[in-house]
Nucleic acid binder design. Structure first.
Lengths: 213, 213
DNA sequence: TTGTGTGAAACCGTTCACAGCG
DNA sequence: CGCTGTGAACGGTTTCACACAA
């Protein structure tokens, strides 16, 4: 029996794992697997079977039988409905340095539901050119471009000192969610969802735990 | 009074925040600030003053006076002692694509306590060259290079299909901690500390939360 | 019999609130 | 006073354990 309402908010950690399950399921589908048990999905995403089943409760998915487990295709589709609502999201990327270009390449091959529509930089010489098949504008025209194309997500790959300013311009342009690679957290109005991927900090954490036994 | 033993294991989230506090403190020091209150540190790393004070309890730092707060230099130094023990850690980076190069650049400027010593790739044509001032070897010689230089940390920026294999070679070479950029979790012996920075997954999470109000 | 779906318990991290001190 | 240090309360997440279904 399903008790979770359609529009119930799913906790962030669960959303992350659902995105991971989807990727695993798509891989399984590609190699022809039809059905999967929670313990298999758990092994492939290393966590516990109980965690997997608990996460799937949020999907309102009629799925799993004790005989066969879950339908790979059905479950993947249900996750996509829940996370994406099927719509493609447009992304603006600010800061066309090495990291910015890497992320462009990274995303181009993947998930067509997430697409970098435009890139921006302070460097005038980059404006007007195409970077990895994606037009690059000067940052001063960001608001117009973002609004005319209905971009709702932003990625920040500029140096730490510029990140807060860029983020505020993004919010002003109407962007609702920001992924920040700068090593400093952004202070933004609470209606904007932000997350940070801090490479140095993560390495420092790994260094700490790798030394104690 | 301090009750936390020197070798007590600090929770991962606290370690992350301590690394962030250190960065903030170093910025403050650079601009000449001598002392800082927990509420200031909290604002700069956006979280609560209570959280900051709770985190600092793990440091066994005699610090804070109600009059002046904490000594900026003293606190930064104490965090470094606790996280790094002052030692420089050597890193091996496998996968010299765009992302790999971006991370090399990113780390070169920063934290001298973390240094990429060698890079590796399957591409023979990259071997023998220098990438961003860092020697690049073929992946087959990784074990020797890693062992002769005492490298203990690894960064994986290869495609998903290769990541597990690369990780196992790293572990075989004696690496103790791995930062994985591939979108699939690694299955490794539990004595190896691993963390994953999954760009696509994070964007999917942001897309999910950016659409609900 | 095996695996799902799920209440209930255990666990962990954050926040509260206040005693103690400069 | 205002801030630190911290015990205690709180809330969210994970794990346990078992009824139920194929």
């Amino acid at each position: 029996m399903k008790t979770v309402k359609d529009h119930a908010v799913i906790p962030a950690k669960t959303v992350e794992r659902l995105a991971l399950y989807r990727r695993v399921l798509l891989d399984l589908a590609k190699e022809g697997t039809r059905d999967v048990f929670s313990h298999q999905l758990a092994a492939l995403s290393n966590n516990s079977p109980a965690q997997v089943r608990r996460d799937l409760m949020f999907l309102d998915f009629p799925g799993g039988s004790p005989r066969n487990g879950y339908s790979v295709d059905g479950l993947a589709a249900r996750i996509s409905e829940t996370l994406d609502s099927g719509a493609t999201r447009d992304i603006a990327l600010v800061g066309v340095g090495n990291l910015g270009r890497a992320i462009l390449d990274y995303l181009r091959a993947r998930q067509p539901a997430l697409r970098v529509t435009a890139t921006f930089d302070v460097d005038q010489s980059k404006a007007g050119r195409e970077i990895a098949g994606c037009p690059c504008y000067h940052i001063d025209v960001m608001k117009e471009v973002v609004q005319s194309r209905g971009v709702t997500l932003g990625v920040i790959t500029v140096p730490a000192e510029k990140a807060q300013d860029v983020a505020e311009r993004m919010v002003d342009a109407g962007i609702r969610g920001i992924l920040n690679f700068a090593p400093i957290p952004l202070r933004l109005p609470s209606h904007v969802f932000t997350d940070r991927l801090d490479i140095t900090m993560t390495l420092e954490k790994i260094a700490y735990f790798a030394s104690r036994v």
